[in-house]
């Protein structure tokens, strides 16, 4: 079946850390490869890993909802790059990112794998995710503030004679 019930399927992954892991993946997906690499350099490169899935560029059909909230329909496709890495200790990390940056997908996968190691999670959060999240928040805050400056303040011009 389609992905319309994807969140239900997530219930199969009985892992309390999943929301936090997904939040980290969301930050990585919006970052640049260079920024992720810079963060990774602070976490340490003492972990051996192999490419479980070499980075691959493909398409994902973007779906919307009829009328904004109804049945799903296909709007059009987007480019997506995915990769998976396996650590020597057994964890598999996944990188799924919009666009065609293979290096970014691979680095995101490596971050996701490291994140799953208890001893590495906090360093990954502190040195990679947190600074990127902050950067993204600031960008979003600026865009929202610029948007807010274009808010319309309506006022009504009273015409004719009011009976007071």
């Amino acid at each position: 079946m389609s992905v319309t019930n994807s969140h239900n399927r997530d219930a199969n992954v009985a892992d309390a850390t999943l929301p936090q892991r997904r939040a980290a993946m969301a930050v990585l997906a919006k970052a640049t490869a260079a920024d992720i690499a810079r963060g990774l350099s602070h976490v340490g490169s003492d972990v051996a890993f192999t490419d479980a899935r070499p980075a691959e560029i493909g398409l994902v059909m973007l779906r919307g909802r009829i009328g904004g909230g109804g049945a799903p329909f296909n709007i059009g496709e987007t480019t997506v790059t995915r990769a998976a890495v396996r650590l020597a200790s057994g964890e598999t990390g996944f990188g799924y990112v919009l666009g065609r940056d293979r290096e970014k997908a691979r680095l995101a996968a490596l971050c996701d794998a490291l994140w799953q190691i208890d001893a590495k999670r906090q360093p990954v959060e502190d040195h990679i995710i947190a600074p990127l999240r902050q950067q993204q928040r600031e960008r979003r805050a600026l865009a929202r503030a610029q948007t807010a400056a274009t808010r319309v303040d309506f006022f009504t011009l009273v015409r004719g004679e009011d009976e007071r």
């Binding site: 969301a26 987007t78 997506v80 996944f94």
Partner: peptide, 19 residues
């Protein structure tokens, strides 16, 4: 808007970024 995709290999819905 945020884009999410059910990744078969990961076994859960992953965020892809925004469009």
């Amino acid at each position: 808007v945020e884009v999410e995709f059910f990744a078969e290999d990961a076994g859960f819905t992953v965020p892809l970024g925004t469009v």
